[in-house]
Computed example of a mutant assay.
Amino acid sequence: MVILITGDTHTGKTLLAQRLLEKYKYPYLSIDHLKMGLIRSGQTSLSPESPDSALTDFLWPVVREIVKTCVENGQNLIVEGCYIPFGWEKDFADDYLPYIDYVCLILSEKYIRRNFENIIRHENIIEKRQSTDVTIDNMIRINNYNLGQCISRKYKYVLIDEYYRIDIDKI
């Protein structure tokens, strides 16, 4: 089984991947680690500050083929990151899809407004981040967009609204 975990920055993708690793012993791949490895090794002229769309266009074909390889080999893997495009399922033949699970983590506007300082304070809970320039308005805009995409595409998502709780057994 391959589990794809996506969502906006600061939604807890890496934390969820870490908890799934601890419970199910599935290894996980951080797309951010892949991004930085490719950037630092000179395999791309992109940078961490490049537009998300350019990074997705560059990274997704590599991640997609890693997922296909895991499915073909009967291996388990958790893949987490912002660079999983909506419409991802169109890149896989129908016989792959039963072995791929997808979930998008979404923070509600209410949650973001009530907890923005805590969101920023906990941004280093799993990984040490460089300084971030996350704003409330941008976070609300992207999470609302992601929610709309998940609803219209009938994707599985977790909406964090009142409290930050994710039941990993439902993932």
Rank of each mutant, 00 (worst) to 15 (best):
L105Q: 06
S45H: 13
I142P: 06
N144T: 08
I119D: 11
R129C: 01
R113H: 11
V62H: 12
V63A: 03
Y155A: 00
S45P: 04
S30R: 12
D167K: 02
D57S: 07
Y163N: 15
T132E: 09
W60Y: 14
E80I: 09
Q43Y: 09
N143K: 07
A54Y: 10
F92V: 10
S47H: 08
L77Q: 11
D95Y: 13
G87C: 01
S47C: 10
D32C: 02
E117F: 00
N144F: 01
I120A: 09
S45M: 07
N144M: 05
H33E: 13
N146F: 14
E49R: 08
E123K: 15
V63M: 05
N124S: 15
I136T: 13
E162M: 06
A54D: 12
R165T: 15
Y99E: 04
S50H: 02
D167C: 03
D167A: 02
E109V: 09
Y99A: 04
M36Y: 08
T135E: 09
E49F: 08
I125E: 15
H122M: 13
A93K: 15
K110W: 10
I166C: 01
L77C: 10
S131L: 15
V63D: 00
I125F: 09
V134P: 12
E109Y: 02
T135V: 11
I39N: 00
K156V: 15
Y96A: 06
S108H: 07
Y28K: 01
E162W: 06
T69Y: 05
I100F: 04
K110R: 14
L147R: 15
R141A: 12
V103Q: 00
V103H: 02
T44G: 01
L97R: 14
M139G: 03
N143E: 07
I39T: 06
M36E: 08
T132C: 11
V67P: 05
Q130L: 11
C70T: 04
N76A: 10
Y155P: 05
L147K: 11
D52P: 10
D101N: 08
V67G: 00
N115I: 03
D91S: 09
V158Y: 07
L59V: 06
L105R: 12
P27G: 00
Y96S: 05
L107G: 00
D161E: 15
T69D: 00
N124V: 10
Q130H: 14
M36W: 08
I119R: 07
S30Q: 15
Y164T: 11
R114E: 15
P27R: 10
G148M: 02
K154C: 12
D167W: 03
G37Y: 02
R129E: 15
D52K: 09
N73C: 03
V63T: 14
Y157E: 01
P48S: 08
T135C: 07
I100P: 01
L97C: 07
C150Q: 05
